Simulated scan of single mutants.
Amino acid sequence: MTNLTEDSIQKILSTVIDVHTGLDLVSSENVKNISIDDEIVNVELLLKYPAINYHEDLKGSVEEALSKEGVNYSNISIKSKIAAYAVQGGVPALPGVKNIIAVASGKGGVGKSTTAVNIALSLQSEGANVALLDADIYGPSQPRMLGVKDLRPEESKEGNMKPVLAHGIQAMSIGFLVEEASPMVWRGPMVTQALEQLLKNTEWEDVDYMIVDLPPGTGDTQLTLSQKIPVSGAVIVTTPQDIALIDAQKGLAMFEKVNIPILGIVENMSIHICSNCNHAEEIFGNGGGERMAATSNTKFLGALPLKLEIRTDVDEGTPSVAKDPESKVSMMYQKIARNVAATLSLQSESIGAFPKITIE
């Protein structure tokens, strides 16, 4: 290219699509700066979600687009800036937390908690500060999944609780406060009060994303979350099975009724991979989550396999993303997490929210 100008470079960048937002780099306002030094084109990109594991792929796409138009020398730098996004009206912000993302399912047994913990760890691996709240008061599972079931929260100087640290994320659960085998024989009002206390009496520190692992269904906990807790968006977890999809649709409709945006749908157990012969079989059906996303006009965030190691990893307290970040399964979780954060980044930012943090 003989005449290198900012306008010509910007035109080229408008052809590069971010696979997680579906938008080009220019229209999504990801191009922070363009400078030309002799024949070297310098491009600074600023993504609105954490994506360290995507930087090299995106850099390659930009370099390829520039090369096709005759740019022989380029220098591409990519950073991320995480903002706080709008929540349902009339609900005050939670101190120390920018964004709360609820992970929900219409029924139990679809792998929601496993999905939630691996999404949280994936966002952390992408460069964000992450917290995980176990909102299942009757059946807390995150302390065991995170490998910290024997720990107890420390008390702060103000008399609040400090979150438990596990695999680099902040965590809180009723499971840290009671014995694992002790049943919570509580009525609904006590459950909702406990949830509020776990959230508001914990001193969260500079959290970019809090993942809330909800109990299955559409009961008291979900209603409390929608009425009293500032939620930026929700993720629905389902299996391809028709029965699971029916219940998942109810969960999706609940969030729509309370004006909490649906960030997308994750299809778990989409295909079974035999641990002995690697034979793949769709034992719960095919494509149900993707069809549900299409009919609900929401995003399909990704599919996950039914794989023995995913279950054994959380049972051992080292979820897949923490145990082996480079594994194929971990990369699936990481892509889903980037899709979640990228979809959230398309929403309106919260007015008067946190100062923005830049991730190198």
Rank of each mutant, 00 (worst) to 15 (best):
N3Y: 00
E6A: 15
E6V: 15
D7T: 13
I9H: 00
L13V: 06
L13D: 08
G22F: 02
D24Y: 00
D24V: 01
D24L: 01
N33C: 00
D38H: 11
V41F: 10
Y49P: 05
P50V: 09
A51T: 01
I52K: 13
I52T: 10
L58Q: 10
V62M: 08
K68I: 04
N72L: 11
N72H: 03
S74K: 01
S77F: 04
I78C: 14
K81N: 14
V87E: 02
V87N: 14
V87T: 15
G89S: 15
V91D: 05
A93D: 12
G96N: 08
V97E: 03
V97H: 04
I100N: 03
A102Q: 06
K112F: 12
T114C: 11
A116D: 11
V117P: 09
I119F: 11
A120E: 04
L123G: 02
L123N: 00
E126I: 04
A128T: 06
A128R: 03
V130E: 10
L133H: 01
G139K: 13
S141I: 09
Q142T: 08
M145C: 11
M145E: 02
G147Q: 02
G147C: 11
R152M: 09
E154W: 08
E154D: 15
N160W: 05
K162V: 05
P163K: 06
G168R: 10
G168E: 07
G168V: 06
Q170W: 07
A171K: 08
G175F: 02
G175M: 03
A181Y: 07
S182R: 14
P189S: 05
L195C: 08
Q197S: 05
L199S: 03
L199I: 15
T202G: 11
V207N: 01
I211P: 07
D220S: 08
Q222C: 08
L223D: 01
L225W: 07
K228S: 12
V231I: 15
P240I: 05
Q241T: 09
A244Q: 05
A244R: 04
K250G: 12
G251E: 12
F255Y: 15
K257N: 14
I260M: 02
L263K: 03
I271V: 15
I273E: 09
I273L: 11
N276A: 04
E281A: 03
E281V: 01
F284T: 01
G287V: 03
G288K: 02
A294F: 12
T298K: 13
K299Y: 02
K307H: 12
V314I: 15
E316A: 15
G317I: 06
S320A: 14
E326N: 13
V340G: 00
L344P: 10
S345G: 02
S348T: 14
S348F: 01
G352P: 10
K356L: 10
I357Y: 05
T358F: 00
I359P: 00
E360P: 14
